[in-house]
Nucleic acid binder design. Structure first.
Lengths: 291, 291
DNA sequence: TCGGATTACGTGCACCGTAATGATC
DNA sequence: GATCATTACGGTGCACGTAATCCGA
């Protein structure tokens, strides 16, 4: 076996043309490189260079060896890359969400349960989520529904209800409950990453205008400093303290009630038992549904 | 870059199952191997092993790494093999002969002219010889004829004449010359590697029997110790002293006269100039033909 | 108690860099 | 004189082996 650094040095020489230049590139002394090349020839048992007194050049076999060496070095680099990549994958739990709202809670939950693991999250629609669960690109996904397929294990973990968030001066501010159609035609502040709620709002309020906001804190500022109606949910309100004096009025449409299902491949169920357990402990309603 | 001996040691461990066994196989101490594996993990930045107190085993990534490593080691070994093989080829002159008789003289000639080169010889028929010259599997070939193709350079280098080698008591022993057909029906000793002469003999003496001999010295013994007629040539007689009292009678058939042509690709002509020159110096007859 | 892995420790040598030499332009 | 390769030489880091330790069957 010939150590790979000798081939590396050979390739450096081939690229640079002289031992001196290559030695500099390799951050070693010229004599060291000279000896390395002598050793490489010795270990191969083959002449790689034509040596004039003050000049050294690759001969035909040397050129061939350089081509082979370049190939070998690429091979090794790619191999190391693949190994590290697999390792990274093994140390990461990939999560898919149908809504961004749940991400923080899930990340902190999983970080606690699987110490040292990286938690990677993405938001996309249910169809993609199911597909990528199947391909094992996600280990867990948070869906709107239990998927039909038998290959998945699913557990309801959270529910969320939609509210309209009105300033006290708004004409509807004293309503006990509202249907979305009652709000049609108005202009709303809306979080752009709200996910599936977005579709519901546009369907039930075809004449409303939505001022989409990319940044949550910008949205918060606008809610505080404008009279524009906005939307929120019980889940969001429970976890954020609003500094505004707005009034939250529940939406009465049936679709304004959502249950989220944490889902994984059945084959991975045991691996994520701690996750599911943490939810069945916290909610008796969910425990009932599980049974 | 990770040195290849670390991968080699990893593979040895994978084959042996324990560090101790692998260390023995590698002829290093157990602690040395233990440290090497720690270092491999460190350089990869990846855990390869599950470590119990008194037991170490490959984990999933370790197994993957072993597969990759085996592959890399094969790659390197094959690469080194190819380099050495090309080197060997570059240090060898491959010669093809239509007759084995000329081999010793050519080998000694070329050994003298190209010091350090290995001379490799084969005997086959003219068609193969020309084909392999073209493929550069032979650098030189000794043919019966100048090949027609323009891609070759050819020079007549030797001529050979066939004789029948009779014991003094043979009825035809006092002939001045003989045609092969005069000898038909008799039984002959014949050197099995005689090449093209063989075909001539069988064609002109369809009723003769030939006792083929593989070994030249066995043939010599039989010639000395039997009354069976045999064949020889002037070329052979010039170079061997026969201890027998046999009489050599020239064969008068036209095909019993052969001229040999030393042939190479035109592109290689300069490389073999010394060979061709040595023949044009030695033989004025050939010099005439060359002109 | 033995076999296996890791840690501790001292040592040798392999490889490095500096310096000197030789050679070419 | 400048550049480049090789040889000479002295120093050092590092990888090795031995020994000790720990652990489990």
């Amino acid at each position: 076996m010939i150590e790979i650094h000798l081939f590396e040095q050979l390739v450096a020489f081939a690229s640079c043309g002289t031992l001196s230049a290559a030695a500099e590139e390799l951050h070693i002394s010229q004599p060291a490189l000279s000896r390395s090349m002598q050793r490489l020839e010795e270990e191969l048992g083959v002449q790689l260079f034509d040596r004039q007194k003050s000049r050294i050049t690759l001969n035909e076999i040397g050129e061939l060896t350089v081509r082979h060496a370049r190939n070998l070095l690429m091979q090794e680099a790619s191999m190391i890359e693949q190994i590290r990549e697999l390792d990274r994958k093994k140390r990461t739990i990939f999560l898919g969400f149908c809504t961004p709202v749940l991400i923080p809670d899930f990340v902190s939950l999983l970080s606690g349960l699987y110490e040292g693991m990286t938690i990677s999250t993405e938001v996309t629609d249910d169809i993609d989520l199911v597909q990528r669960l199947r391909e094992n690109k996600y280990q867990l996904a948070i869906l709107h529904d239990k998927p039909d397929e038998n290959e998945f294990f699913s557990l309801p973990v959270e529910s969320e209800h939609l509210y309209v968030f009105l300033p006290p001066a708004h004409p509807l501010a004293d309503a006990v409950g509202l249907y979305l159609k009652d709000l049609d035609g108005q202009t709303f502040l809306l979080y752009s990453q709200i996910g599936f709620w977005d579709g519901l709002c546009r369907r039930e309020m075809p004449n409303a205008r939505f001022l989409l906001q990319q940044e949550l804190n910008v949205l918060g500022e606008l809610i505080e400093n404008s009279a524009l109606p906005a939307f929120t949910t019980d889940y969001v309100m429970k976890r954020t303290q609003s500094r505004s004096d707005r009034i939250a009025i529940p939406i009465l449409d049936e679709e304004a009630n959502v249950t989220y299902y944490c889902t994984c491949l059945k084959s991975e169920k045991t691996k994520f038992r701690p996750v599911f357990q943490s939810f069945s402990k916290n909610s008796s309603a969910i425990r009932n549904e599980q049974a």
